[in-house]
């Protein structure tokens, strides 16, 4: 019988129509503000800086090596090294700015960072009333605790913590070895 195809198609749409009232699987839309936070673990948009402990500045992992600044394809990162009173460069940034309106979320900064310091955030509620200042994220706004990192990306954060612990262990081993070597090479009194 000809014309069956149309009826079959109509049946499919009817199934979708009524199915969307009974089956949660058919209606995957989440109503945004009242539907709650449904961010998936893998989601990402803007990078942020991780700090350990309580004090953001003291616990900062970033050492202002500027690798991310150089690697950033749209060049949205701006870093200035901190200096002590005598003008000697310190191993931490004084200015760390990310222009959120330029960042494209490519995650390259995360990949080049040797200190597990910069990671991708998944907060998407970034609207502001000011186009320029509001989207220029400074150091204070970017610094977020390791606890927060564990909350949004548990797996990544755990892996990062493991790597850091491994690094620390190796450093301690090396130090112990050097100390042992030093004590061995010293002439015995």
């Amino acid at each position: 019988m000809n014309g069956q195809g149309i009826l079959k198609g109509m049946l499919v749409t009817a199934k979708n129509f009524f199915g969307s009232y009974v089956s949660r699987e058919r209606l995957t839309t989440v109503s945004y503000p009242e539907g709650g936070n449904t961010i998936k673990e893998q989601s990402r948009n803007i990078p942020f800086l991780v700090f350990d402990g309580e004090d953001p500045v003291a616990g900062m992992r970033c050492t202002a090596c500027q690798k991310c600044e150089k690697a950033c394809p749209p060049q949205c990162i701006f870093i200035e090294k901190d200096k002590d009173e005598r003008g000697k460069a310190l191993q931490r940034p004084k200015v760390f700015d990310i222009d959120a309106s330029v960042c494209m979320g490519c995650q390259i900064c995360v990949e080049v960072c040797p200190f597990e310091s910069i990671w991708m955030d998944s907060n998407f509620e970034l609207s502001t009333f000011n186009r320029f200042e509001g989207l220029q994220f400074n150091r204070e706004k970017l610094l977020k605790s390791n606890t927060y990192f564990h909350k949004i990306h548990p797996q990544q954060a755990q892996a990062s913590d493991d790597r850091l612990a491994e690094k620390e262990r190796k450093r301690l081993e090396r130090e112990a070895a050097r100390r042992a070597e030093k004590s061995a090479s010293e002439p015995q009194v």
Binding site: T13, N16, F17, S20, L27, S31
Partner: peptide
């Protein structure tokens, strides 16, 4: 509304 439901979404709400 109807088209929305057919396409598995809410439509104006």
């Amino acid at each position: 509304k109807g088209l929305g439901r057919i396409q598995n979404r809410y439509g104006p709400n």
